[in-house]
């Protein structure tokens, strides 16, 4: 499968989560907090903490640890709160 991560095309495997793909590429954070702009990535890994939020296909607030990648997904860093584009 091909997915885009912040504009860069990469391959992903069926059954990988977005977090799995991002961590596999050596990233540890892909979101900044609304208040102080601090970086966040996976914390709980099982869908509870909402720290790993990411923008997928223009829609923000997707939990990277819960979302399985689909072919052609466009994955972007989430800066604070974002509206759908």
């Amino acid at each position: 499968m091909k997915v885009r991560i912040d504009g860069e095309e990469t391959t992903a495997l069926e059954g990988q989560t977005v977090a799995g793909v991002l961590l596999g590429r050596g990233l540890t954070s892909w979101r900044t907090t609304r208040g102080s702009g601090r970086p966040r990535g996976v914390f709980c890994g099982i869908g509870v903490c909402f720290d790993c939020l990411v923008v997928v296909n223009g829609v923000a607030d997707v939990r990277a640890c819960q979302r399985l990648v689909r072919d052609g997904d466009d994955i972007r860093v989430q800066h604070g709160a974002e509206l759908p584009s």
Binding site: R34, D61, G80, A81, E82, L83
Partner: peptide, 8 residues
């Protein structure tokens, strides 16, 4: 809703 950008 979840937090949205200021001015929404």
């Amino acid at each position: 809703t979840g937090p949205l950008p200021p001015g929404t």
